[in-house]
């Protein structure tokens, strides 16, 4: 199997925009020279507020296996209460990291000793001029900080492109602020 594939699983609630966030990261990764970028949402019977997830695979080479991620390198969670749902952190590699929108500090989350980074994206987004509950742009800042995978500037550019008619500057600012306020824990 291809070991050079970076596997990121995104968990959110229906309507939070986890798929859009993953799509923005996919676009940024492709621009950075990752030719293999595949984002596969796992579809159930979607309802607003219900848990949803999407798999993002990133590789230097074309990706042929579209099956869902079972052993992610990273798990991004748009709502910290989802950490209490069964299965959300399942399969995370031993050196993997959880990136979560949470008002709490990393140490305050019980995640079986796994590495975790937190940022209060919900509050930061309001500070950046977005209305309450818009967290899918901000979480990308936390992802950038915790993963170190893609340069923040490219992500900010892709955020502005995606939200070109929906407060592009405020969405980018939310990600930029979150980047600087992400708590990497220990």
């Amino acid at each position: 199997m291809s070991d050079d594939v970076i596997k990121i699983r995104w968990h959110g609630r229906g309507g939070q925009g986890a798929i859009t966030a993953a799509k923005i990261v996919a676009n940024a990764a492709f621009e950075c020279g990752y030719n293999g970028v595949v984002m596969t949402p796992t579809f159930g019977t979607e309802r607003r507020g219900a848990p949803v997830l999407t798999s993002l695979k990133i590789s230097r080479n074309k990706i042929y296996d579209l099956s869902p991620i079972s052993e992610p390198d990273m798990i991004v969670v748009l709502d910290h209460l989802l950490l209490e749902e069964p299965g959300v952190i399942n399969g995370l590699k031993s050196d993997g990291i959880i990136i979560v929108n949470s008002p709490k500090k990393p140490a305050d989350h019980a995640v079986n000793g796994k590495k975790i980074a937190t940022a209060d994206v919900t509050s930061i987004a309001v500070e950046a001029g977005l209305k309450q509950g818009i967290v899918n742009s901000g979480i990308i800042g936390a992802f950038a900080k915790a993963s170190g995978l893609i340069e923040l500037n490219i992500l900010l550019k892709k955020i502005k492109e995606e939200f070109h008619d929906k407060k592009p500057s405020e969405n980018a600012e939310s990600a930029r602020l979150t980047f600087s306020k992400t708590d990497m824990g220990g």
Partner: peptide, 10 residues
């Protein structure tokens, strides 16, 4: 369906 229809790739 889904595997290609709803998956994003370049």
């Amino acid at each position: 369906g889904y595997l290609l229809s709803h998956t994003y790739m370049p």
